[in-house]
Amino acid sequence: MMSASAASPSAVLPGVARKVGSLRKERRWALITAYVSLVVAAIVMLAPPFYMLITSLKTSAEISNPVGTPWIVRNPTLENYWALISDPMFRGFFFNSIKITAAVVCVTMVISVLAAFSLARMKFFGSGLLATGVFLTYLVPDTLLFIPLYQIVGGLGLLNSIWGLVLVYPTLTVPFCTWIMIGYFASIPKELDEAALIDGANWMQMLTKIFIPVALPGIIAATIFAFTVSWAAFVYPTAFITRPDEMPLTIGVVSQLIRGDTFAWGQLMAGALLAALPPVIVYAFLMDYYIAGLTAGATKG
């Protein structure tokens, strides 16, 4: 790997001075390799979303009669977006997603902040075991659980209801959020809570007055994670929801905008982009928290 040579900042150390000329050349080449790789990677990574955008701006006529390259749009139109926004069914998907995500994020954060505080700072019988359990739970994929959960949710009469999804989504979000919150809480110096205890604070005050403010970056990262995961969840809604009026966006776009043999590709792509927009916006504005959360453990995907 030629990349490694440039990794060493040691290239200009005195001991290797006689090689400086060739090393500088080598470094320049390494830099060129780096940029070329990154440009190629960026093109590959961004091509599908870009092509989705291009398609969503085309009329059906332009899509079905391609002249020349399909990668540019000749008569851009927003009619696909308008058609979706004025479609009550699509708006319904959006509201369902918002309702589900808001409920799941609140439930998740309450559960995981309380549990993380208790596991990081207070001890009780079996707390060490529980921390390991949280980690193991995080490794259980939704595709292993959806069939028994289908039976359980069905038994509760919550199939075809967004509340059934609100009930099961915590299996996707709670373990990871608890896990990263334990890490953030554990990194808070013990002197802080001792000081608070001496001042007569009780455990609840300690959590709300010290831990939550100090670990705010962690809380933001966990919230972003919970939001992204519940917005993008696919297995559970596909299994539990068959009625269009209770569908969240992901499954709504995939199942309801694809009908028959002739697909309205422009509308489909517009729908997919609109559905992907909220996580992308959150990412664009909170990239650092997003990445902090990602590297704090490991995210699903």
């Binding site: 990574m45 989705m52 696919f234 792509m269």
Partner: peptide
């Protein structure tokens, strides 16, 4: 970016 877009939707693309 590919990681941020929900996979079901980018797969449509």
């Amino acid at each position: 970016l590919p990681w941020v877009v929900p996979p079901a939707l980018s797969t449509l693309g």
